[in-house]
Amino acid sequence: MELLPHLFHTLLLTVRDVLPIAAVIFGFQLLVIRKPIPNLKRVLIGFLYVLVGLALFLVGLEEALFPLGKVMARQLTDPVFLYGGIEQLAGEIRWLDYLWVYLFAAAIGFATTIAEPSLLAVAIKAQEVSGGTIGIWGLRIAVALGVAAGIALGTFRIVTGTPLYYYIIAGYLFVIVQTLFAPRMIVALAYDSGGVTTSTVTVPLVTALGLGLASTVPGRSPVLDGFGLIAFASLFPIITVLGYAQLSQWRNRG
């Protein structure tokens, strides 16, 4: 197990990702604001924690969870598992045959979202700013349910082969209507939750699932159908977070 070189390499990559951000921050701080950073030492230690933490996080995922998750995504979409062999496949593919795939998609979407660090960051801020009205766990579960529904529907779309934009356009129209009725304070946060769901943890596993599915379902092309799961994962959390706020408002009115 070559854990240490891998760890070192990932740490270097993380440092490279942070460099432009650090350059912008410290450049503006020194040249434009021209005031010393308050608690500079603490902030630098914080940056160090973030770097080391992210590197450990990524190495752990790549060592343990990603390989297994990707293999499972392949096995679940394998015709041998689904029909007991490609020759068993009589004519049309039936979307019902893929029930385990949808379940896996929903479950893995939910689970990876709960572990997503950027969502946790936004949830901490939201709880702080809302004075506790929006709980860290409430927001995270609402977003995770949205991602679960989105990815499950996205895999269903790949199996049935319907065009992506039907779903996306319908989803956005739904969001627009829902926005008109949702409490005003949640709107910006809900829109943000669409963007934060899809980073470090969710993207690699979900992409593997989409590409695996698109290359094993007869008649699908990985190029045309493999993408688009991420789009589902960023759309549906908006709906569930708006819904979560509507639900709590409605309950409070009681």
């Binding site: 230690i45 914080g46 924690y49 590197a55 660090p117």
Partner: peptide, 18 residues
């Protein structure tokens, strides 16, 4: 275990740094 330690460090870094 690595993932858990990493996440804990990251959250601490958020609070005192970012």
């Amino acid at each position: 275990l690595l993932v858990a330690v990493g996440l804990a460090l990251f959250v601490r870094g958020l609070e005192i740094g970012l």
